[in-house]
C-alpha cells in the first residue's frame, strides 16, 4: 500500500523529506511500481472513457488503486466509466468524494443523453414537415420513426397509398346505403358489389318496363315537353357530390359535339 504513495511524492522534487525517503528505500521495486502507476495514469487520461480494459491493466500495475477500482467496477456501467477517469486524476482522495464526482459525471451523462434525445426529437418533426401530410398522422409516423423504419420513401409511399384507399372506402361507405355500420374492408367491398349488381338489375328491369310502356303508348309528342320540366324539379343531390366544378366545366365544352353525334345517330343503335 505504501510504496506507490512514497514514490509518487519522490518524483515531485520540491520536497526534501521525500527525497531522503527515496534514498532510504531500495530503488528498483519502488521505481517499477511508480512507473507502472504513471503509465496507468497516462493510459487513463488518454483512453479513459472508451476502454475499460486499459484502466484495469493500470490497476493491476499500481497496487494501491486496485481496491478502489474493484469497488468502482461493482457500480453500474456509466458510473464505472466516469469513476475511472476521476480516479486517474486524484488517486489519494477518499471513496466518498469519488462517488460524488462520479455521480455528478453520470448526471452530466444523463443530461447529455437527454439533449441528444431532444435533438433527435427535433430532427423528426423536420422530416415530417418536409412531407406535406395531415398533422394527425404525425404521431404514428413518430412511433415508426423511433423504430427506425419509416424514413425510407417506400414505407412513406405505402402509408400514403393505404390512406388513399381507406379514404375512398369511406366515400364508398357513405354512398352505399346500409354500409356505415359495417366494419372491415372485405364486407364493405361485398356490400358495394351487391349494391352495384342490384343497381344493374334495376336498370335491366326498368328497361323492360320502359320497353313495354314504350311499345304500347302512342303519345309520342307528349314525351319531350314534360320530362325536362319534371326531371328538373326533382331533387338533385345524388349527382351533386362527386362531380367537381372543373369536371363539369370541361364537359360543357365537349357536350355539344356529342349532342350532335347523338342526333346523327346514337351509337347504341349501331351496337345492337
Amino acid at each position: 500500500m505504501d510504496p506507490p504513495l512514497v514514490s509518487e511524492t519522490s518524483f515531485s522534487a520540491a520536497n526534501p523529506s521525500s527525497y531522503t525517503l527515496t534514498e532510504i528505500w531500495p530503488f528498483p521495486p519502488s521505481s517499477s511500481t511508480a512507473l507502472g502507476l504513471r503509465m496507468g495514469n497516462l493510459a487513463d487520461r488518454d483512453g479513459s472513457i472508451e476502454e475499460s480494459t486499459v484502466t484495469e491493466q493500470s490497476g493491476g500495475n499500481g497496487n494501491g488503486t486496485r481496491k478502489t477500482r474493484d469497488l468502482s467496477s461493482e457500480e453500474d456501467y456509466s458510473s464505472k466509466i466516469v469513476s475511472t477517469t476521476t480516479s486517474a486524476n486524484d488517486l489519494n482522495d477518499s471513496n466518498g468524494k469519488r462517488r460524488k464526482i462520479s455521480g455528478s459525471r453520470s448526471e452530466n451523462n444523463n443530461s447529455r443523453a437527454e439533449i441528444e434525445a431532444s435533438s433527435g426529437a427535433n430532427n423528426k418533426p423536420a422530416e415530417q414537415s418536409s412531407k406535406p401530410l395531415e398533422p394527425p398522422k404525425q404521431d404514428y409516423i413518430h412511433v415508426r420513426a423511433r423504430r427506425g423504419q419509416a424514413t425510407d420513401s417506400h414505407s412513406l409511399a405505402e402509408r400514403a397509398r393505404r390512406e388513399k384507399i381507406s379514404e375512398r372506402m369511406k366515400i364508398l361507405q357513405d354512398l352505399v346505403p346500409g354500409c356505415n355500420k359495417v366494419i372491415g374492408k372485405a364486407i364493405v367491398l361485398d356490400e358495394i358489389i351487391n349494391y352495384i349488381q342490384s343497381l344493374q338489375r334495376q336498370v335491366e328491369f326498368l328497361s323492360m318496363k320502359l320497353e313495354a310502356v314504350n311499345s304500347s303508348t302512342n303519345s309520342s309528342p307528349m314525351i319531350e315537353g314534360l320530362h325536362l320540366k319534371d326531371l328538373g324539379a326533382q331533387p338533385l343531390d345524388a349527382t351533386g357530390m362527386v362531380f367537381g366544378p372543373q369536371q363539369t366545366r370541361e364537359y360543357v365544352q365537349g357536350s355539344q359535339s356529342e349532342w350532335l353525334h347523338m342526333q346523327v345517330g346514337g351509337s347504341f343503335e349501331r351496337a345492337t
Binding site: K164, I171, L175, L206, V213, H227, D230
Partner: peptide, 30 residues
C-alpha cells in the same frame, strides 16, 4: 385499387341517378 375505388364511387352515383331517372320516366309513362 385506388383508381378502381374512385371510379366505383362515381359509377355508383351515376347508376343511382340513372335508376332514378328511368324510374320516374317509367312512372310517368305508366
Amino acid at each position: 385499387i385506388c383508381s378502381l375505388l374512385e371510379e366505383t364511387a362515381h359509377y355508383i352515383k351515376c347508376l343511382d341517378t340513372q335508376v332514378k331517372v328511368m324510374q320516374s320516366i317509367a312512372d310517368y309513362y305508366s
